[in-house]
Amino acid sequence: MLSMRSAPAGVGLDSNAKRQNSMKVLVTVKRVLDYNVKVRVKADRSDVDLANVKMALNPFCEIAVEEAVRLKEAGVATEVIVVSIGPKAVQEQIRTALALGADRGIHIETENSPESLSVAKLLAKIVADEQPGLVILGKQAIDSDNNQTGPMLAALTGLSQGTFASEVKIEGDEALVTREVDGGLQTLGLKLPAIVTTDLRLNEPRYASLPNIMKAKKKPMEVKTPADLGVELRAHTELLGVEPPAERKGGIKVSSVAELVEKLKNEAKVI
């Protein structure tokens, strides 16, 4: 049986109010280029050109924040902690998450945005310190398109994982997670604490209101370094270069369905 996005989060609250009364939710946010921006490769082909490109919260992380805030509003979570890893600029995205309703922020300061395994190692330390009942990450960062960090964090912490979530329900000591998989939808029961990664349909994030943006400036934000957490980061890959994708040659406009069918048959020979 499968119910989809029907019951509000917080169903089954009474059955295990104790755990839920003390459940912290940890969410992770990555600073990435705005999803509407089409990046270009640098002339020397060393990397993509991010100079003067609009940066934003990774869309999947925005959904993660929204889900955590809804769990708090439903009385399932008591506190929402937001973590971001990267240079000082990522504090902007932490503030955005605080304006959306997270309670406090943790910034782990690194020179660049580290690889997914390094991110997972740093997050594992935060999980050990904070003991959240649920960790929500984006399924994928839209810059690296890695789609790795959630399951890596689950491995390092020895916790259950529910990736590509389109619905999350906390019931007793379990998270019921409906996952968007290639064949359709799959629902898993995950022992809490659990690691969840978001898919696009999980929720529709709210906009931060001006008063909440002001309030967010006063919310606490801790800054730590990998050394503070006792984590030594190591490179697992080396970027040798970046090239633009093969461009498609511009095609033609056909004036009628008849012409289209004729071209597909006789020119392209695909039907």
Binding site: L117, A120, M152, T163, F164, V181
Partner: peptide, 23 residues
């Protein structure tokens, strides 16, 4: 690089303490 592979392999990589190349 299907949903099954994307779900499983990063967990394997982390257990091996190695990175993953996706896709």
């Amino acid at each position: 690089a299907t949903t099954t592979g994307k779900n499983l392999l990063p967990r394997v990589a982390a257990l091996l303490d190695v990175g993953q190349l996706s896709d």
